[in-house]
Design a protein around this nucleic acid. Structure first.
Length: 205
DNA sequence: CGTTGGATTGGCT
DNA sequence: GCCAATCCAACGC
């Protein structure tokens, strides 16, 4: 399986994000089990963006985000959840793409063991659900996706750009004018369904 | 040093 | 739909 090269990541997050849809994240667990999943939902962040961890400058937590592209930036939030990002841009720039949802391909049994019994479509449908299923935590912060042996990205089947939908980011209360969430509109494994396009009649609420 | 709130989730009303 | 869980990074004094 061909890995995505460093050059793929060394571009602005807004450019990399939509191209990550359809690519495959692979994982080798300590016991040798191979996990993989097809990316269906991501969000772009950069340092000019008030919603980004990098907006307030380089800190111990965001150090990886400002470093070499093609590495994993992993952070802890809400006292219990891990989320993972792909670092993008040139070294010195604080940009990354949050991995939010995927369709499980290999290792369903191991994922289910970590997440508890659930329909496969819910296994990786959310950033913290995905890290839990993949066993990703703070130890993976800074992992090299281009050359590392624990987690990496393989080229997947191309998704036509007209099937990649753009929406506002989830859980982000600032910079809402930046529609930087990208999803495979045909996927049933999203963390949130796409906003319904009303056919004609206005909906009650 | 104390305070605040978060790129979330799952369980309950 | 609402909210608690549960830790810690970032910021203010």
């Amino acid at each position: 399986m061909a890995r995505l090269p460093r050059a793929f990541f060394a571009r602005p997050s807004l450019e990399v994000a939509p191209e990550l849809i359809g690519q495959v994240l692979a994982r080798r667990l300590d016991d040798g089990t191979r996990l993989s999943a097809r990316i269906v939902e991501v969000e772009a962040y950069d340092e000019l963006d008030p919603a980004s961890h990098s907006f307030r400058g380089r800190t111990p937590r965001t150090d990886v985000m400002f470093g070499t592209p093609g590495r994993l930036y992993v952070y802890f939030t809400y006292g219990m959840h891990w989320c993972m990002n792909v670092v993008t841009g040139r070294a010195g720039e604080g940009s990354a793409v949050l991995l939010r949802a995927a369709e499980p391909l290999e290792g369903l049994e191991a994922m289910t063991a970590r997440r508890g019994p659930r329909p496969p479509r819910e296994l990786l449908a959310g950033p913290a659900r995905w890290t839990r299923a993949f066993g990703i935590d703070g130890r993976d912060d800074g992992a090299d996706l281009v050359r590392g042996a624990a987690v990496w990205l393989e080229r997947g089947e191309r998704v036509p750009s007209d099937r990649v939908a753009v929406t506002a980011r989830i859980g982000v209360t600032v910079a809402t004018e930046r529609p930087w969430r990208f999803v495979d509109a045909a996927s049933r494994c999203l963390s949130r369904p796409l906003p319904r396009v009303s056919p004609s009649a206005p909906r009650r609420r």
